[in-house]
Design a protein around this nucleic acid. Structure first.
Lengths: 137, 137
DNA sequence: ATTTATTTGCAACATTATTGCAAATAATGT
DNA sequence: ACATTATTTGCAATAATGTTGCAAATAAAT
């Protein structure tokens, strides 16, 4: 029924106003969100600290994952079903639009295998592509 | 002869102690450097602000580029010859070792082409792989 | 409904980044 | 080599961002 409650319950999290609201933001958002986006979109009704802790909790539970950026910010996006607590498997491409500045998870674009030199062992791979998105073209 | 001066002159930059020292760090380093690394490796002989401005200048001139990270830090690494001012073409893989925490540019590993959905136009691609490097294996 | 566990917000603090401006240094022209 | 001009640096002040402890508020359990 209510997807929000479902996700929170599945992860054994207390149902609170803040968590519901922030999770809702992620469900509604097509792309990724930064801490600042969340503060803005909640009219600062939640303390800065609460937002930090909520995001941290969500990451730990595998509800969201963070996306690499080239500036000093952290972007978060919803994980798909195949993410479990502590183990993120988001092997999809992240796209940053130079025009509208949004970050989008391209869930359908699969990252090809990369052959590493001898001695290197891969655990995680992140692919970030920037350019113009389909809405700004 | 002196690679340092050569690079600075090519980019029409004044030759200063700080720029020489910081550029030298990059030339010596096998991997990427964060702001904090630079402060540490110069014994804080340069003001924090100077380091920020030097890095910014180097990025603008295409001497270094920044590498995406999932924490809120910025990593910088030397650009190869095919980088011009404002146009970075570092189509190689960046490797972050979970053990020694170093970031290494794998210049020989070429990034395979990724097919994007309709409407998306690629300008830049960054691939960051984490795991265990060849020295820590 | 009461107790217990968890979460929130405040305050204080720590770290990281940015800006203006005067002093110091580098480049330029003679 | 020296004076002039342009650039760069460091300091100070400020802003932005992230962290921690603790009491009050809220949610969950009995």
């Amino acid at each position: 029924m209510d997807q929000l409650l479902d996700i929170l319950k599945k992860n054994q999290l207390s149902i609170t106003e803040g968590r519901k609201k922030i999770l809702e933001l992620f469900l509604k958002s097509p792309g990724a969100l930064a801490h600042a986006d969340i503060e803005k979109n909640t009219d600062a009704s939640y303390d800065r600290v609460t937002v930090y802790r909520t995001l941290q909790t969500f990451v730990e539970k595998g509800i969201i994952h963070n996306i690499p950026t080239t500036d000093n910010s952290i972007l978060y996006a919803l994980c798909k079903d195949n993410c479990e607590a502590g183990h993120h498997h988001d092997n999809h491409v992240h796209f940053i639009c130079d025009s509208c500045d949004k970050t989008i998870c391209l869930d359908n674009v699969i990252i090809p295998e990369v052959k590493l030199p001898k001695g290197f062992k891969q655990k995680q791979i992140d692919v970030v592509i920037s350019g113009i998105c389909d809405e700004c073209k």
